[in-house]
């Protein structure tokens, strides 16, 4: 069944913008991204939006739909109240480039800071022997599609531009966790993630977990265990004295 959908889409650039009303025909079973594409095709050919796979696999079409951060390709129109306009705004934590497109380079800068996977001394050369049960924990985090919704919703940086410098954000805490839990990684990044990447700033409100389209348990399975391991290392008495000795 075809019906007319009302949309209010934020249009503008770094100098400012406003919500613009559109009304386009949509069909049953369509998603928000379909409606945005229809706006492009019939009403605003230059409406800027990022998208690629339209299947929830690439993580490109992140935006805030009725105030909630989500992938537009995985947001079914039927899940929104009929008759009311759907409001689409760009992710708020990142600077706007144009319309729904934001400058997410913050994330690529943080990615450059991650010390790469480094095989252990025991198994320096692939093929490695690793058991399924041991790779599964890291595999959960490697499901991440880098939509950056967790980064967008994290209030350490959402309302605090000043924290961006010292905070890598949930996407990268799962990356550090993934490497830490990799059965054949030989590098210890715990002190780094705590002291330099801002793990300590996270006060585990689980907003990131709530918006993750891959349903990765970011807080429970990555951040909290990581915090615990950091504490184990920091307050392990043997290591504590060893560190003190090293400083002398």
């Amino acid at each position: 069944m075809t019906y007319d959908l009302k949309l209010r889409i934020w249009r503008g650039d770094s100098s400012g913008g406003e919500l613009v009303d559109f009304s386009v025909p949509v069909d049953d079973g369509e998603v928000v991204l379909d409606a945005v594409h229809r706006v492009q095709a019939v009403a605003a050919g230059d409406l800027a939006v990022r998208w690629n796979c339209k299947a929830g696999k690439c993580g490109s079409c992140s935006a805030e739909v009725n105030g909630r951060p989500r992938l537009m390709c995985m947001s079914r129109l039927s899940d929104f109240p009929q008759g009311e306009p759907i409001v689409i705004t760009p992710m708020r934590t990142f600077p706007v480039i144009r319309d729904l497109v934001t400058d997410v380079s913050f994330n690529f800068q943080k990615a450059q800071l991650v010390p790469a996977f480094t095989p252990s001394a025991e198994q320096p050369q692939a093929p490695f022997r690793m058991q399924q049960v041991d790779v599964e924990r890291s595999q959960e985090f490697r499901k991440c599609i880098e939509c950056f919704l967790c980064q967008n919703v994290c209030h350490v940086i959402r309302d605090h531009e000043e924290n961006k410098e010292a905070f890598s954000g949930p996407r990268f805490f799962i990356r550090y966790s993934e490497l830490d839990m990799h059965p054949n990684d030989g590098l210890d990044r715990k002190a780094l993630v705590q002291d330099e990447r801002g793990l300590g700033l996270c006060n585990i409100t689980k907003c990131c977990t709530e918006v993750c389209p891959e349903h990765i348990k970011i807080t429970d399975n990555a951040i909290i265990p990581m915090k615990e391991r950091v504490v184990d290392v920091k307050y392990d008495p043997v290591r504590f004295f060893r560190r003190r000795a090293a400083r002398r």
Binding site: F117, Q132, L179, D185
Partner: peptide, 9 residues
């Protein structure tokens, strides 16, 4: 795998 990929086992 050498570069960090985690295939099923």
């Amino acid at each position: 795998e050498q570069w960090g990929a985690l295939f099923d086992r």
